[in-house]
Design a protein around this nucleic acid. Structure first.
Lengths: 233, 233
DNA sequence: TAACAGTTGACTGTTGACAATCACGTCGTT
DNA sequence: AACGACGTGATTGTCAACAGTCAACTGTTA
């Protein structure tokens, strides 16, 4: 647990301790501060978050159900680790779900939503040009999911995005891949603006296929090495 | 909370109190003992399960993340209720996911798995003929999901099945619909046995479409009346 | 009678203490 | 030296008590 530098100060608004710790832990895990496989010590977390173990334990239950951590009875809680097979499974489902979402987004979008998507892409292009960083990719996909106006679909898609962010947290994207991904996003945007649903779905499918290829190539070969968090608890 | 008759006796094996109460609550909710919208009193549950509020609260966190209950801060926990829109959204995603699952199951199935599916159907037919009950429908769909050999896909599908079971807990199926559903299942089975993936997917899509039609027609018109569990916590 | 402030009871949120379990190191035996 | 029983410290699991919040009830006032 030496991944967390010091005590975390919480702005005690009106949210409960449980909700705060849930959010905080989610950020620490998805931000990479808490690495996959790392053990989460309840006492230490409680001290760092300035609360007792009760709310911490309740948060860990939530995160376990969300698939971000694995709880092993009497052993401890660990940040979830992924094997290459699991990554492949995630991509397979994501391909199906997001291609469909893209199709429906093209059909159901409002003009305002399409503009938001375009603005997101402009921002990405700008920061890629000036700073060389490729950002807001997840936001792009989330916005498309929102444009389906189907909360169930959006939630399932978001789950897959989050899982993948964690599974790929040790992989990298080259500058070339970033540029290509941006262009693929641009093409998807245009198809959605044209309300060309079949084309939009096809473009998204190709985009995710290439993304998977890149992920598989750049992943650390140790991805499915010994898993300290085990399988069940 | 008068839905639960008396104290529930727990066979104290080696499972933790939290795991036992999670499983128990899941069964009570999906079995209909705890009806949608009903409030879950932590103190009463703790007494009935012969444990303290700690494990109960942790279980409720898990069930909330699974979408079976809704927690409202300082208000209480309620069995999740559904609106007609949510049911429509569930069916839309289920159609996409299960049609794809059926296609892949046809391609990836082992002979043993196909036999299990057939046995399930035989059992259903038998009990429908002798007792007039239509059972094991969910097991049929779960088996197909398992035959995709993709755990992510199977889990997402199972989530939708569970949600739908809860959303439809106040709807009914006529004897005619049961008979038709059985025949539709039979057709799906045959397509999977023939490894005819396109046909299998198509049949599943039609089957779920008809299932939705039936659900919409037979649902109590009060489904999206005032929601006592509110929207968020 | 209607509206409002204060009170009260029930419930959830949180805490610290205790019990149970596990991993690891130590010691003795073969 | 290798192996296994044992003890020990650390960590999770559970509990009971306390604190905070909310909703309903009461009584008062215009």
């Amino acid at each position: 647990m030496d991944g967390i530098p010091g005590k975390v100060v919480i702005a005690r608004g009106r949210a409960t301790a449980r909700l705060q710790s849930t959010e905080l832990l989610r950020e620490l895990i998805l931000g990479g501060t808490l690495a996959p496989g790392q053990r989460l010590n309840e006492v230490e977390l409680a001290a760092q978050f300035s609360m007792s173990r009760g709310p911490i334990r309740e948060s860990l239950q939530t995160l376990a159900a969300e698939g971000l951590v694995t709880i092993r009875s009497h052993k401890g809680t660990f940040v979830k680790t992924f094997t290459k097979d699991e990554l492949a499974n995630l991509y397979e489902v994501r391909l199906v779900l997001e291609a469909y979402a893209c199709r429906q987004a093209a059909l159901r979008r409002t003009d305002a939503e399409a503009e938001v998507l375009g603005g997101l892409l402009d921002l990405t292009r700008q920061r890629l040009a000036t700073e060389g960083v490729f950002l807001y990719e997840n936001d792009f996909h989330l916005q498309i999911l929102a444009m389906t106006h189907n909360d169930v679909l959006a939630n399932q898609g978001r789950y897959l995005l989050v899982q993948m962010a964690l599974a790929r947290s040790r992989s990298a994207s080259s500058a070339e891949r970033s540029k290509a991904a941006l262009e693929e996003h641009q093409a998807v945007l245009e198809a959605i603006c044209d309300k060309n649903d079949a084309h939009a779905a096809d473009l998204m499918e190709r985009h995710l296929g290439k993304s998977y290829e890149n992920a598989r190539r750049t992943l650390e070969p140790t991805l499915d090495a010994a898993d300290p968090s085990g399988t069940s608890g």
